[in-house]
């Protein structure tokens, strides 16, 4: 089900302002990769270009061997979780999650019974059993986020893309959801890219991290690789906080304080 994503020399300009200057990135099947960078670095533009929500001015996106440009949005089958979730306000949680299945052409649409069992399965997966009759306005931020994720998973996506998945949540809920998302990824195994501006989030959650600045990828690597060999002065300063905390953690002997801030 999951496919690798290959980005080749992707370029995108907004007017005269270049948002992506020839970005290349390889994401293996089933990998969880963070796109990290300060605001205005082009990370969200990259995510939206992979999704097909932005038309790139040059370069290529490949899902496995297939050129994304040859696919319509429907054929791309990408699960996208928006920053503010973009849940359908006038629909119940059930109808939100069922949307992608009901919107299929009649020939490939599952029966209402099959849709129902799939939606209830997904609700169970995101731990929201029993909330299917609620409207989005009646949910907490964390619950909405999980509905958005269940809705994206309902279409059995090739790739899962998350735009600042925890951006709108308070610190406590963020930490819980981070752990939960990590577990969910291990269980479902989707190729996943997520955008974040939070270094801790990227380093704690992702298999690999791609750090962007001013429309270019500065470095791609695992947390350890980046911390040990920052490729550029920008990376050095950008991860300074994390590097210092890691060093402190190593100095301390008690293992249970390692993860705390």
């Amino acid at each position: 089900m999951s496919v690798p994503v290959r980005v080749r020399n992707l370029e995108k300009n907004f007017g005269r302002y270049p948002a992506l200057k020839g970005v290349s990135l390889d994401v293996e099947a089933g990998e969880l990769v963070a796109l990290l960078g300060p605001s205005g670095s082009g990370k969200t533009t990259l995510l939206r270009a992979i999704a097909g929500l932005e038309q790139a001015d040059g370069g290529q996106v490949l899902f496995g061997d297939i050129d994304a440009n040859s696919l319509s949005l429907r054929e791309r089958r990408i699960g996208f979780v928006f920053q503010q979730y973009a849940l359908f306000k006038h629909m119940t949680v059930f109808d939100n999650i069922a949307f992608g299945l009901r919107a299929r052409p009649r020939s490939s649409r599952p029966s209402e019974a099959a849709i129902k069992s799939r939606v209830l399965d997904l609700l169970h997966l995101v731990q929201l059993d029993g909330l299917e009759v609620r409207y989005p306005a009646q949910l907490s931020g964390g619950q909405r986020q999980r509905v958005a994720l269940a809705r994206a998973l309902a279409i059995e996506p090739r790739v899962l893309l998350l735009d600042e998945p925890f951006g709108a949540l308070d610190a406590r809920v963020r930490k819980d959801l981070r752990k939960w998302l990590r577990e969910l990824h291990q269980r479902t195994g989707h190729t996943t890219l997520f955008v974040t501006h939070d270094q801790d989030e990227a380093f704690e959650l992702a298999d690999r991290i791609a750090i962007l600045d001013k429309g270019c990828i500065e470095q791609v690597g695992t947390a350890a690789e980046i911390l040990e060999h920052p490729a550029t002065p920008f990376i050095d300063s950008f991860i300074e906080g994390i590097a210092r905390r890691e060093a402190q953690a190593r100095d301390w002997t008690k293992p249970h304080v390692v993860a705390s801030r």
């Binding site: 929500l53 089958r77 699960g79 996208f80 919107a103």
Partner: peptide, 9 residues
């Protein structure tokens, strides 16, 4: 955009 990403026409 969410609807289009979910495959709706």
């Amino acid at each position: 955009e969410a609807a289009l990403m979910l495959g709706a026409s």
